[in-house]
Design a protein around this nucleic acid. Structure first.
Lengths: 257, 257
DNA sequence: CGCCAATTTGACGAACTTCAAGGGTTGTGG
DNA sequence: CCACAACCCTTGAAGTTCGTCAAATTGGCG
């Protein structure tokens, strides 16, 4: 039927493989910083690396010497309970192309959470030393790198609002609305269809619901004619009603004017 | 009976009023940055201001020209639902002395949430211009200011884990454990008693529970001999068991080695 | 086809919310 | 000094949302 859209194709440029950063990687959030910063980043990149789907990239407590910019695919960050069982995970963030995955590793040195690829993914690595040099050279570039991590924190706060205040259906709708906006900024939403390479058990870890209840919520959204979540993508049928159900307001994403 | 401990006394220095920053304000998180940064901040401070309990300091969307460091008292940050009723609030952060309340307003320019005093409070204001000058002068100071906001984000992530994965009793216990650690760093925990100037309705906004259920949870913690939450403070009876109940691990607060 | 993982469904129970009423404390004014 | 009001906390009963368990169904892929 439709092309298998379960994941973002790692190389859609028709066989031309990528060994360095170039302008077509400048999308999403990093695309909203100065072009001058981007030029500096291009020279600071020490490595382009591919990750397999579900591959762990770094773990809580690891000493980090590099930060990674996501170029293609999607990644997640999650916290594992210090408790007994290993199933006690919360997804605290999802990354789209153009997002730095662990830029906060620069000021923090080690992280409080794990980082993993969700789909097959391609990342650009920047040595912290090089990033510090960029910051030392330009306070404005420093402010913009800081800004990227502050958008991340604003999203954390919104997720807090979501799990604290929204009912299951509204919570899932809200999450889809957020990805709709963020992936649009990467040019990944076509015909109201966005890549959503998350299992229902992943959606459960995002929202704090059980897997079974996520299944029921998806059915409800589908039967209400709002959106269909299936096969690693989400088809939005009625964006207005979906947003109204979630009470969605995109200002926390600091949209460009 | 006991002294009224409902709030942190705004001036405990015996009548000596405070008109400028001095070393005894350097506690909590800001106390963990370089002393050289503190010296710069002392000269950058443009105003010391007192806030009344429950006074709103700034609102989502306000253009900010200053950032505030909390010196005494406690403050909160909350998100209000874009929905209809005004009661749809989530507390997304609580600030202790030594915390910057809205340092992220420097890179973000305007915030996605409201900021208010919880108790009577005293804050130091820093013009963004002066903070930018500090950053321009020293990349290391820039990194440390950034670091302060990244601890804030790590706390957001932990709160996400809490509301997503912990049951009501463990969630409240976890929150108390966090404040126990953070307020200890300000020297505000004496004889296992910490200031907790939150109504049960505030605890409900922190945890995403109903006010009624918070009451039941507090009773449960009290009767289990773990801690007594009352009159604006919390008395910890058995820190070990309280932490075990919450599965508490303080590493997300990046404790000093 | 046949296997395996993911999703779906139903039945049941637990956790939490809502509604409503009562009680304790504090401050205020007669 | 007492009465009263306002606010917060507590308690009980009833209702709702969501979790858990278990079984059935779907869909991709060798």
């Amino acid at each position: 039927m439709r092309p298998s859209a379960a994941s973002i194709p790692p190389d859609s440029s028709g066989g031309l493989s990528v060994h360095a950063l170039d302008d077509r990687h400048r999308c999403g959030m990093v695309g909203r910083t100065d072009i001058a910063l981007w030029r500096r980043l291009e020279t600071a990149c020490s490595e382009i690396r591919d990750l397999k789907a579900r591959e762990t990239f770094s773990r809580a407590g690891d000493a980090l010497s590099h930060s990674a910019l996501l170029l293609e695919g999607m990644m997640v960050r999650y916290i594992t309970g210090s408790g007994h069982a290993g199933t006690d995970r919360a997804l605290v963030s999802i990354q789209a192309p153009g997002d730095f995955v662990d830029l906060h590793g620069l000021p923090l040195v080690y992280l409080d959470h794990d980082v993993a690829a969700l789909t097959q993914a391609r990342i650009a690595l920047f040595p912290h030393e090089a990033l510090r040099a960029i910051m030392a050279d330009s306070a404005e570039h420093a402010r913009q790198l800081w800004w990227l991590t502050m958008i991340d924190a604003a999203i954390h706060r919104h997720w807090l609002f979501r799990t604290n205040r929204l009912r299951a259906t509204a919570a899932v709708a809200d999450f889809i609305c957020e990805l709709d906006v963020r992936l649009s900024a990467c040019g990944l939403v076509l015909d109201d269809r966005l890549p959503l390479p998350l299992l229902q058990s992943d959606l459960a870890e995002v929202t704090g619901l059980s897997t079974v209840h996520v299944s029921r919520v998806c059915k409800e959204l589908r039967e209400a004619g709002l959106c269909t979540v299936r096969n690693g993508s989400a088809q939005i049928h009625d964006r207005g009603r979906l947003r109204r159900l979630a009470g969605f307001d995109d200002r926390y994403l600091y949209p460009p004017v």
